[in-house]
């Protein structure tokens, strides 16, 4: 009895943890299953039978693929913008001495601590007050996405950069590399994993955002907005195909990233 309770005590936490993980995956299983669901009654979330039709006709529902395209475009541009701005800021905050450090830190942290609905309404208030109420659309979405991705980029790149021994950059300067060469030959390659992680995070944040986008989109329709609208009209099963594809792409990227970092560590 004693040995059994010990065994259980040792593994109880692990078992609980695995159960929680399972809980996190339940909706994913549902999404994958429903992507093969044959069309039936109005509610597409009742399993009617197996079919591949949804996979073969992904773009069939009106606006699905065009909204997907819009989301990808905004995601890429927002990622580019936020990654560049955020990386520059992270370098300044870790490697340069300047006045108002702690307020700069707070300044970067605050957007992450602001509920999306508040950030979205502030931006809308600004755009409307500035007379852009009629011009809401791709541009205003992009501005807002760069904004909320920016803080995450700064934090991610900063974490990587803080772990980097400043002596490496000093060694480069000591070995006749000027500031430019030091950056491109030493700092950048070593911080790159952090920048890449920040970019991927930005893309997924941008791609997935609904609340802020919905307030500032005007007539533009992003993929999450399409899903939202579909919920009112009846959900096409193709949405679950997209969900499944997103899951597997993300999984692939995570696994590749893990393998790359393992290979680096192994060297």
């Amino acid at each position: 009895m004693n040995t059994f309770s010990r065994w259980l005590g040792d593994r109880l936490v692990l078992i609980l943890g695995l159960l929680v993980l399972l809980y996190m995956f339940v909706p994913i299983f549902v999404v994958i299953l429903m992507s093969f669901n044959a069309p039936g009654a109005r509610n597409s979330y009742t399993f009617n039978g197996f079919t591949l039709d949804n996979w073969l006709n992904v773009c069939e529902p009106f606006q699905l693929c065009s909204s997907l395209r819009t989301s990808i475009e905004i995601g890429l541009l927002a990622t580019l913008g936020a990654t560049i701005l955020g990386t520059l800021m992270a370098f300044a905050m870790v490697r340069h001495r300047f006045r108002g450090r702690s307020s700069a830190n707070l300044f970067v942290f605050l957007p992450m601590a602001t509920p999306e609905i508040v950030m979205g309404s502030s931006l809308l208030a600004l755009f409307v007050n500035a007379g852009f109420a009629g011009a809401l659309g791709f541009g205003t979405i992009l501005i807002s996405h760069i904004l909320f991705c920016l803080s995450f980029v700064v934090v991610t790149v900063k974490a990587r950069l803080s772990g980097l021994d400043p002596r490496l950059e000093q060694a480069a300067a000591d070995l006749y590399a000027n500031e430019w060469q030091t950056f491109w030959r030493v700092s950048f390659p070593l911080v790159f994993p952090g920048i890449l992680a920040a970019a991927l995070l930005s893309f997924s944040l941008s791609f997935d955002d609904f609340i802020i986008t919905n307030l500032n989109a005007g007539q533009e329709v992003t993929f999450p907005m399409f899903v939202w609208g579909a919920n009112q009209r009846g959900i096409p099963p193709q949405i679950n195909v997209i969900g499944t594809i997103m899951f597997f792409i993300a999984l692939l990227v995570v696994v590749l990233g893990e393998m790359a970092s393992r290979r680096r560590a192994g060297r």
Partner: peptide, 26 residues
Amino acid sequence: VAVIAPFFTSFLIRTLSWQYILGDNE
């Protein structure tokens, strides 16, 4: 990885699938 992976499927799609999980006749 397992903690993070599910969350790259759209927030909305995941929430919709709870409609199914919690649904009346499910």
